[in-house]
Amino acid sequence: MEFRLLGAVTIVSGDRETHPASGRVRSLLACVAWQPRELVPDERLIDQIWDEEVPTDPRDALYTCAKRLRRALAEAGGAERGLVRLRGGYLLDLDPERIDVHRFRRLVREARQAGDDTAAACLYERALRLPAGTPLADVDSRWADGARTVLRREQLSARVAVAHAWLRAGRHAELVPDLVYLAEEHPLDEAITGLLMEALHRCGHQAEALDRYAGIRARLVEQLGDEPGPALRHTHQRLLQRNAGEFSRATQ
């Protein structure tokens, strides 16, 4: 049995996928799968599942949710005993590798520790190829909103990191289409623009690389009232100097 949180909350057993019908049950499953094999106290679960709409008897409501989740696990073909009741809380007794979020994070950790750029890039790509949609897409709560923000940030960080790794490995030509798309998705992200400028410059598109800098600078000034940060300014200056050096050699 496996669980997916990168998208709609899903129980996967073999070829069968089950989506718990109750929003509260989905919330409970997401909360305990977020930190498997760790006790999640009743008070935290109640807060994460119900927000301000706390029922009259919250612990009884939580017990009912847990009972329905166990039934959903059993109907999905898995072991309902995976959700364990301990003193003061619940625990999902499941190997974290069976939960997509934790597989994603493990692959990212391995990528960061990889000995060379190609190995790192391949690991990042394995993480990013995991089936994904809007994280916790069918869970509506403040806790889920915060978890979505965290996961989107981690996914974007992995997308930037894989571009860094492939760029260092000399795969700049293959990177340009993906970086263009990423820059359109995140028009104020200076790290992404810097990578795109570098890839374009290495591909011989020096003018377009400098145009990218001018574009993000104009957006930052207009929308945030601020200039690009030092890292992007340094990239811009470095490319200008490289252009000047290449022009000088060409005219000698």
Rank of each mutant, 00 (worst) to 15 (best):
G82A: 08
R106F: 03
A173K: 13
A132Y: 12
L123F: 06
A121I: 09
L179A: 03
A173W: 08
A165C: 07
R98F: 13
Q113T: 04
A121V: 04
R105V: 01
H164L: 02
E110A: 05
A173N: 05
W143I: 07
V176W: 02
V162D: 00
D116I: 10
L94I: 11
A161T: 03
H172C: 01
A79K: 12
A79S: 08
V160T: 13
G115I: 06
V180K: 00
R168S: 09
E110H: 08
V180P: 00
E75I: 15
T118R: 14
A72W: 14
A158G: 07
R153Y: 09
V139M: 05
E97L: 12
R85L: 03
A169I: 12
G82K: 04
R142D: 06
D117R: 03
E154R: 15
S157W: 12
R98I: 06
G88W: 06
L107N: 06
A165Q: 06
H172V: 03
A163M: 03
L175F: 02
V180E: 00
T134Q: 11
Y181Q: 00
I99P: 05
D117A: 06
A127P: 10
T118V: 15
V160G: 07
A111V: 01
P177I: 00
Y124I: 02
H102E: 02
D117I: 01
L182K: 11
R168F: 06
A79G: 08
V101A: 08
T149A: 15
P96T: 13
R159V: 10
D93N: 09
V176F: 04
T118D: 12
R168K: 08
R103V: 13
R109Q: 12
A158K: 14
H164K: 07
R153T: 14
V150G: 11
A79I: 08
D140H: 11
R106D: 00
D145K: 08
D138S: 03
L86R: 10
R85C: 01
E154M: 11
W166A: 01
Q113D: 09
L136H: 05
L182C: 09
H164Y: 10
V180R: 00
Q155T: 12
R106V: 02
E125L: 07
H102T: 03
R106Q: 03
G88D: 02
E97H: 14
R159P: 04
L91I: 04
P96G: 06
F104Q: 04
L83D: 04
G133P: 14
A147Y: 13
T134G: 04
L130R: 14
P177L: 03
L73Y: 13
A144V: 12
Y90K: 01
